[in-house]
Design a binder for these strands. Sequence first.
DNA 1: AAAAACTGTGCAAACGTTCCCAAAAACGTT
DNA 2: AACGTTTTTGGGAACGTTTGCACAGTTTTT
Lengths: 336, 336
Amino acid sequence: MRFETSTIKDIAKALGLSTSTVSRALRDRYEISEETKKLVLAYAEKVNYRANPIARSLKERRSYSIGIIVSEIANNFFSQVINGIESIAYDKDYHVIISQSHESYKQEKLNVEHLASRSIDGLLIALSSETQDIGYLRSLYAKGLPIVFFDRVPNDFETHKVIANNFKGAFDATEHLILSGKRTIAHLTNSENLSITKERLEGYKAALIKYHIEFRPELVKYCQHGGMHSAELEQAVKELLPLHPDGIFISSDRLTTGCIMALKKTNPEVAHTIAIAGFTNSNLVELFSPSLTSVKQPAFEMGQVATELLISMIEAKRPVTEFETKVLDTELVKKR
Amino acid sequence: MRFETSTIKDIAKALGLSTSTVSRALRDRYEISEETKKLVLAYAEKVNYRANPIARSLKERRSYSIGIIVSEIANNFFSQVINGIESIAYDKDYHVIISQSHESYKQEKLNVEHLASRSIDGLLIALSSETQDIGYLRSLYAKGLPIVFFDRVPNDFETHKVIANNFKGAFDATEHLILSGKRTIAHLTNSENLSITKERLEGYKAALIKYHIEFRPELVKYCQHGGMHSAELEQAVKELLPLHPDGIFISSDRLTTGCIMALKKTNPEVAHTIAIAGFTNSNLVELFSPSLTSVKQPAFEMGQVATELLISMIEAKRPVTEFETKVLDTELVKKR
DNA sequence: AAAAACTGTGCAAACGTTCCCAAAAACGTT
DNA sequence: AACGTTTTTGGGAACGTTTGCACAGTTTTT
């Protein structure tokens, strides 16, 4: 915006004070007399003065805003996380800038670097499924940018992290399939890079072991693009079906919905005979047919916790050296 | 971010030039000799110089970023619009700041004013369902902030607007219900404030008239909160059912999914007997049961067109006085 | 050979803040 | 009345850019 907003200078001139005095009065510093403070505040109110955050950012080298990187806002899991983030951030007077990586490493890096150059005070990020090299994050972090990871976290990066109990979520879902009589349970999952992929695979295996079911690697299918390309998914489904699974455990939101879609499209006759249990935070899951058992992540809470950790890092006077990895429980919503 | 990034001054010092020369070299001005230009560019590259956008914004009183206000990013329609916006904005070197109103007037106003104070160069906005008073937008606009409305537009605000052909979309959906034999067609819709509500109601009425079906006002239910509160929706459904509709035409994304959910929850036995046609851009609609006929808006394109219009306003040298209202066609996806 | 024109560069102000430092005013003490 | 304290205010630099203007050096024109 360009036009005639009143500045601290204008106020100073109008009131016959110096800009320093006005600035201090507005920031409510102790040195200023009550009288002057009131005068300034009243006048500022009258002319509808708004401090220019850009100027403040430049001077203070911080912006009271935090950056968020998710793969897709269209994904309910991420939009719920964002809502959690906003709920805390606004309370503490931070603003929030959202960027999407669309599961692309290149886009992710570009967005992060742009955010950093815009003086964000901290970054909340869930890695894209393509991302392998987090060197660019390391160097930003080394330069002093606080970073908190959530959901998709790197394992060799020392900072706060917030994740779901992926092992348990996967275990519960797989166990649920087993307890409803399934014995040939396939596993459809994300890129092998991702932390969540590994943890969920372990949960799946553990459930099989508990019930003495053999783990068959050919029943596990990885999708490099996290279901962003439907061809990739259809291919995975096509390879899986000849093995005659009676259940599928799916490890991410996008894959879960994508897989059901692929099943309905390519093999509608079997779509209803295979039991599905998958991670998803879709708020439309009750409408799905075939219905499924879902593992819901505490997305909103995850956003809140991550934001609290981030803000604590931002506002810490001395560099933080003790880091936490918070693990939040998932919820199993059984198929009706 | 705070740390040691190199500035134009550093480069100037290192190269024994003045900051002005460096600045001009980087911006590729004609006055600078090729030689110096190369020198500066090479050195900038070497030290990985990034211009500080905050300083630039302060100086130029613009930020190369545009603000977006939608009610909810979790809504597929809006997330698709945002993707369209980004596709154009990034091409033209603008960045994008997304805010959610959550259908609240207060939140909407707050967000817009914050964006404006952060020197956004223009605003793309779909009004919240609560919004009646757009005075605050008028005054921002009067101060020189370019605004383009999309989807939910005010009718008494002279600027560019981009909307779907709501009349035709509604007409087509209603006609489709009629052609599949329905005669008692209810209409579930948004707050009466919204432009889209009026236009879609007209389309619905027109279809009824064409087939000589009486318009019965009691079959139309308005939801003030646009389906944000499930109680509101369940109440509407509860009031509708005693009238024994055999079809329902629903005029928004959130209401469409919400209504099906309410039906399944409160009256599962009739859920499959009522034909539903509704506006929705959900990319999961194929999974829904009962399945439905959907009216899809050209969301991505809407974002693109709105952004092009906005950027043309931003970059216009003289104030724009000729405004367009672009109307984009919807697509009817029939129930399988 | 002097005047005019053009090139390339530097100086310094400006954008709207914050904050260090010093100056002024008010007060208290002897 | 003179001094020392404390409280309140102002001056001005700084944050990192962009840009109007001036100036030096070179080339062209007459």
